Simulated scan of single mutants.
Amino acid sequence: MPDTPPSEMSFEQAMKELEQVVGRLERGDVALEESIALYARGAELKKRCETKLKEAEEKVAAITLDGDGQPTGTRPVEDL
């Protein structure tokens, strides 16, 4: 497993590693201690993915549309 902290990963990087972690755990061919470490890493990666998705949702929600439905810019999320 890479040693990159999840907080420094893009959504795609975190998701790819999370899929690898889940695959290894599902196979069941790792020792108990390694399984625990993998589970902990998976939880961190899941949290990172959720954070990045929430950020993306907020950006999309902040896009304002004009009368014709065309994007006119963004506004702060606090204004929503």
Rank of each mutant, 00 (worst) to 15 (best):
M9D: 03
L18K: 15
R27V: 06
L65I: 00
A62T: 00
M9C: 03
L53W: 15
R41D: 12
P76F: 13
V30L: 10
V77Q: 10
A43Y: 06
I36M: 11
Q20C: 14
Q13M: 15
L53I: 15
A62P: 01
D68E: 09
F11Q: 12
Q70H: 04
A40D: 06
T74Y: 07
M15Y: 14
E44Y: 02
E44N: 06
G23S: 13
A56G: 08
A62S: 15
A62E: 03
A43L: 05
P6H: 02
Q70C: 07
K59R: 10
E50D: 14
E8W: 11
V60M: 09
L80C: 10
L25F: 06
A14W: 10
A14P: 04
E78M: 00
G73P: 04
E19F: 13
K52S: 07
V30G: 04
D66F: 03
A43T: 05
K54G: 03
G23P: 04
L65P: 00
D68R: 01
D68W: 03
L45M: 06
K59W: 04
S35Y: 06
M9F: 02
L80D: 06
Q13H: 10
F11V: 07
S10K: 07
G23V: 05
G73D: 03
M1D: 05
P76L: 15
R24W: 08
M15L: 15
S35C: 08
E33G: 02
